[in-house]
Structures are given as structure tokens and as C-alpha cells.
């Protein structure tokens, strides 16, 4: 899996919306926050009855940094058959929002369903919507700091993690005293007892023989496996002897 902290390789386009291929998915308009409400009202009056979605994109190095994207669809309320619906037209409004002026007028008065998506854009990007009746976080807890979907917000969250990542919690039933099944518990007990007595896992026979005869097993060391002597000296602790999640 690619590292989340590494910059994307070969990232080129600062403004993909200016370079897009000729895909006919919507009529695209780019406007400023000041003109937004006027344009939305005009579109609504001309038949775009549905606000499908309000989303945002963070372009990081572009000026203006963010785009708030509105998707509109024109369907009549009396379109009761497929024929009456026909092929509706779509409009996509791209509103460029600079990082030092994170304010956009709210569309709640025009379409009541803008309420939640605008809250989500505020929560995840930090863009405020003036005139919104209830602008608070929606996806993250109320006391969260930061806006997660910004590009400079790390994938795994802030450095001051609230819940640290523990080493793989090996809840061995034997260690807890409640065996999963009699047979495996007994077998595991034998293995542990043998390991404690001999200092190594029972499988490494050659290494044992080599260590006891005083010569280090060359095959073991060249393969990078710890020598039998080291293994014998290391105490066995089921709770920590596990795969650490790096």
C-alpha cells in the first residue's frame, strides 16, 4: 500500500478542472463566491429544481485553493412518466474559495437540502457558509480539531493521537487462563515448557546441535536467523513476543 505521507508521484496538474477531457457530463461554470447566490437563484428560476450535491475539493497549491462544487439537475415536479422526465440537464458550478477567505454564502434558503452537505464541507474542509442556520460539525466529534479532508491533514490523524496504536494485542487464551480447546491448550503448554527448558523453539534442531557443539551454525547466521544461543537467553513472554505494527 502506498505510503500515505509520501507526496503523490508525478503529480502535475494544478488545476485539473481546466484540463479536463471533453466528457459530456454537465454544463460547467466557474464563478466566485460573491456571484454564487445570484447564479443559483437564476438557475433555480429557470427550472433547475434539484440541488443534487454540495462538495468541496482541496487543490493545495492552486490559487484559489479550494473549489466548492454544486451539482444541479432540472426536473419538473409534474414529470410523472419517463417520457416526461426525458433527458434532464445538469449544471456543475465550481466556486473557487481562497484559503484566506474561507467563506461562501449558504444555499439553504434556496434548497433546504443544502443544510447537511454544507455542514460536512465545513467539518471536513473548514469552509464557512454564511447564513447557515446550524453550522457545526457533522461527521467528526464536536470537539475535534482540524479539518480532515484537507490535503495537509495527515491520513492517520494528528500527531497527538487520541488512541495510540498498540502492539498486536495477543490475547492468548493460555495466558489468560481460559483455553480455547483442551487439545490445543495442552499442546501449547508443552511447546512453551519445552522452549523454556531448551531455550529455543523445538523446530530448530540443527541450530541446537550446532550451539551445543560449540560452533555457530553458519547456515543460521547467513540466513539472518538469531543464533540458538541468543534465542536461549531471550526470555519468552507471550504478551510482547508478537508482531509489532510499525
Amino acid at each position: 500500500m502506498p505510503s500515505s505521507q509520501a507526496p503523490p508521484i508525478g503529480a502535475t496538474a494544478l488545476d485539473p478542472t481546466a484540463l479536463r477531457p471533453p466528457i459530456d457530463d454537465a454544463a460547467i461554470e466557474r464563478i466566485t463566491p460573491a456571484d454564487l447566490l445570484a447564479r443559483l437563484s437564476a438557475l433555480k428560476a429557470s427550472g433547475y429544481t434539484m440541488l443534487l450535491d454540495v462538495g468541496a475539493v482541496d487543490y493545495l497549491e492552486r490559487i484559489p485553493r479550494y473549489d466548492v462544487v454544486y451539482h444541479l439537475l432540472n426536473i419538473a415536479a409534474d414529470a410523472a412518466t419517463v417520457g416526461a422526465v426525458g433527458k434532464p440537464r445538469r449544471v456543475r458550478l465550481l466556486v473557487g474559495v481562497p484559503h484566506d477567505a474561507l467563506e461562501v454564502p449558504s444555499a439553504v434558503d434556496l434548497w433546504p437540502n443544502a443544510n447537511w452537505p454544507e455542514r460536512e464541507v465545513f467539518d471536513l474542509f473548514g469552509i464557512r457558509f454564511s447564513g447557515h442556520p446550524d453550522l457545526r460539525r457533522i461527521q467528526m466529534p464536536d470537539d475535534w480539531e482540524g479539518h480532515p479532508l484537507r490535503k495537509d491533514y495527515p491520513l492517520r490523524g494528528p500527531a497527538t493521537e487520541m488512541t495510540p496504536r498498540p502492539a498486536f494485542a495477543l490475547k492468548s487464551n493460555v495466558a489468560a487462563g481460559t483455553p480455547a480447546s483442551g487439545k490445543t491448550a495442552a499442546a501449547l503448554q508443552r511447546q512453551i515448557a519445552a522452549a523454556r527448558a531448551g531455550g529455543i523453539a523445538p523446530a530448530a534442531h540443527e541450530a541446537v546441535a550446532a550451539a551445543q557443539s560449540g560452533t555457530t551454525s553458519s547456515s543460521a547466521t547467513t540466513a539472518g536467523i538469531a543464533s540458538a544461543k541468543e534465542l536461549a537467553e531471550r526470555p519468552i513472554n507471550l504478551k510482547t513476543d508478537s508482531n509489532e505494527k510499525s
Binding site: S4, Q139, M140, P148, Y153, P154, L155, R156, G157, P158, T163, P164, R165, P166, F168, A169, K171
Partner: peptide
Amino acid sequence: SSGGVFDNYAIVQGVDTIIPVDVY
């Protein structure tokens, strides 16, 4: 059990960080 496919800011990486688990 461990956060699964979602190793990110939003998901608790294993519910055993908050409650004791008997079987995974």
C-alpha cells in the same frame, strides 16, 4: 479487530483499545 482496511483518522484501530475482547 484492528481497524481493517481503514488505517486513518476516523476509525479506532481495533475495538480492543477500548473494551476487552474475548474472541476475534
